[in-house]
Amino acid sequence: MSEMQDYKSRLSDPASRKFETFSYLPAMKAEDIKKQVEYLVKKGWNPAIEHIEPEHMMDSYWYMWKLPMFGETDVDKVLAEAEACHKANPNNHVRLIGYNNFNQSQGASMVIFRGKTV
């Protein structure tokens, strides 16, 4: 078995905190985010955008940016809303969610823009 890396995430150190699977990877570039939106739309999931201040990211409540985009299939419209949320809240984490109607759950949830950590 290979050596496992310990990510030293601590509540006392906001800069070290990890959230969701993709946070262990480098920040997503625009083309990476577009691929994720394309995936959500291809799966038939409803995209939604949420945001939160970095110091509160461990809370279970994130602010919803407008309503979920029910039935939206235009990738550019979803990306425009994500960018608008990020522009309006430049210091906040912004995440993309894909709601799966069939399972009535989140099919995907990932932070696409990282806010400034303390």
Rank of each mutant, 00 (worst) to 15 (best):
E3V: 13
E3R: 13
D6K: 14
D6N: 10
Y7Q: 03
Y7G: 01
K8L: 12
S9D: 06
S9E: 12
S9F: 11
P14K: 11
A15K: 15
A15N: 11
S16L: 09
S16A: 14
R17L: 15
K18C: 01
F19L: 15
E20R: 14
E20V: 13
E20M: 15
E20D: 12
T21F: 14
T21A: 15
Y24I: 13
L25I: 04
P26W: 10
P26F: 08
A27E: 15
M28R: 14
M28C: 10
M28K: 14
M28E: 02
D32L: 01
D32F: 03
I33F: 03
E38K: 12
Y39D: 07
V41E: 02
K42W: 12
K43M: 15
K43W: 01
K43T: 02
W45K: 09
P47C: 09
A48N: 04
A48W: 00
I52W: 03
I52F: 02
I52N: 09
E55V: 13
E55L: 15
H56C: 10
H56Y: 15
H56V: 04
H56S: 12
M58A: 06
M58Q: 11
M58V: 04
M58G: 02
M58E: 06
D59W: 05
S60H: 06
Y63T: 11
Y63N: 12
Y63F: 12
M64L: 09
M64W: 07
M64R: 12
W65D: 01
K66E: 14
K66P: 01
L67D: 07
P68Y: 03
F70Q: 05
G71N: 08
G71I: 07
E72S: 05
E72N: 03
T73M: 00
T73R: 02
T73G: 03
V75E: 00
D76G: 02
V78G: 06
L79N: 07
A82W: 02
E83Y: 09
A84P: 01
C85T: 07
H86M: 04
K87H: 05
K87G: 04
K87L: 05
A88R: 08
N89G: 01
N89E: 09
P90T: 05
P90R: 00
N91V: 08
N91D: 12
H93Y: 14
H93K: 02
V94R: 06
V94P: 00
V94L: 11
L96S: 08
L96H: 02
L96Q: 01
G98Q: 02
Y99F: 15
Y99E: 06
Y99L: 10
Y99N: 00
N103K: 14
S105G: 11
S105V: 04
Q106S: 11
Q106I: 06
Q106N: 14
G107M: 05
A108P: 01
S109G: 02
S109M: 12
M110V: 11
I112Q: 04
I112H: 03
F113V: 03
F113Q: 00
R114L: 05
T117V: 11
V118L: 13
